[in-house]
Design a protein around this nucleic acid. Structure first.
Lengths: 248, 248
DNA sequence: GTTCGCGCTTGATCTGGGTCAAGGATAGCC
DNA sequence: GGCTATCCTTGACCCAGATCAAGCGCGAAC
């Protein structure tokens, strides 16, 4: 039903060190020089906040390695993760002033940043960059809306299954046999981060993971290393036959 | 914190009959002719489905009058509304094939449609249309993510308050006195539609509305005509002091 | 008028997931 | 080795919201 925004572009453009779909210099030879000039890298440790909601955000960026999350927090501390940024994902709001949500490094993180003002100028001069950003933003919108179904209508078990299948399918190190075969990967999120993404408590996340393990839908080595013997079965658990959901 | 995508452009361009922010012919004098040629109107009765999820969608459109909603449904019938389209809102996925969700006429509805292929061509030739669409899509993304917080972390009472304040602030017929003054409007949604938007059951929606009424936070005449004597108070109920939330 | 249907309300009861609380496992560090 | 911190698990209990059920109000059709 939905397309799969995060899946559709590993964007492997050879030795390009950046691999960001939107503005990869290698894919934009004409703009190479202009983009190179406004480009810089930033590193963050797990747990660090990249930008605070409402703060001025004078750059746009794409993830080089690691995972960042977009998070909203209420005054009383309730938080909801509204997006996961994996390598090659883009973050930024050309034409917008402040950040709309906290951007937090969930793992150690390297981002490739472009100063915003000149980036916007380049965008104006280079129509297909705006169009590519539009497509990516539409993908993110689809993913966000898919996630609204998860948050609003799925049970705890379905939520966990949805998240696991999404991570499994995006994980670069996945090992897959057959159409709905075995997948192996490491969870890049703590139970608490998963809870924040799923609108649950960390206790419920833990319990449901234990239940999936007990029922043989998944296997765990340690707390993070996951084996999914039958992805099709997991997708059924997710209440989501057609596709395994989408993320952003 | 967040900007207010749906609020920021009543886009009153005089006698323009369309008033769609993205492609209003009056605001695009250069493209007037080209857009006029691919433009047509469609009317729907309340309850009709405009497009089904997955179907080919060979147009993009903006709402002229009435309300449409974007809805996702699981095989077992659970449904989640993922967007509300009010007059001047845009719907469509330039560069995308099928529809990602059902589009349903929630009230009687008139849409101004543009055939997709030629629209995409015009977009390619007219950079600032792509840029305007990008900005609108970013707004919708913000709204969707804001709604994720509502779905994932707010209580039933807060959800209702969030929805009411959003509708109140977007309603054209609103009557407002002072900064957080009295507002009067008609609910354009049934209890069931509200439930689908909020991830609740219609019974819970009904009960919470009754509770808000009992507590004097809102007044009701009949089942749809709402008076909010103190918007500030409602926003507190919404657990959302800074702003009243955003919608899409 | 009566009847129907739909949208809505309200009550009674049940339950999934939250809350509170007590450990267990593992990694780093002295 | 022991100590501490972090992350995770599990149990006991509770409550917000779901579910099941009955009935109301009101406009439309006859």
């Amino acid at each position: 039903m939905l397309n799969e925004p995060m899946l559709n572009s590993p964007h492997d453009c050879g030795d390009c060190p950046i691999r960001h779909r939107a503005v990869c210099a290698r894919c934009e030879p004409l703009e190479l020089q202009a983009l190179e000039e406004i480009k810089y890298y930033r590193s963050f440790e797990a747990g660090q906040t990249v930008v605070w909601s409402g703060d001025q955000m004078d750059f746009v960026a794409s993830v080089v390695s690691g995972i960042a999350s977009l998070t909203q927090t209420m005054e009383d501390g309730r938080t909801q993760m509204v997006g996961l940024l994996l390598p090659s994902d883009f973050v930024g709001r050309p034409g917008r002033e402040g950040a709309a949500y906290d951007v937090v490094a969930t793992t150690d993180l390297v981002m490739c940043c472009f100063r915003k003002k000149p980036f916007e100028r380049i965008m104006l001069e280079t129509p297909h960059i705006a169009q590519r950003l539009l497509e990516m933003t539409l993908d993110e919108l689809d993913a966000a809306r898919e996630w609204m179904l998860v948050l609003g209508r799925k049970t705890a078990r379905e939520k966990i299954a949805s998240l696991l299948s999404i991570i499994a399918r995006r994980d670069a190190s996945l090992k897959m046999t057959g159409m709905a075969g075995t997948m192996v990967f490491d969870l890049p999120l703590t139970r608490e981060a998963m809870a924040d993404y799923l609108g649950l408590t960390l206790e419920t996340v833990s319990r449901q993971i234990s239940a999936l393990k007990r029922d043989g839908v998944i296997h765990l080595e340690g707390k993070r290393h996951v084996t999914i013997p039958d992805l099709g079965r997991l997708l059924e658990e997710a209440g989501d036959d057609a596709d395994g959901g989408v993320m952003a």
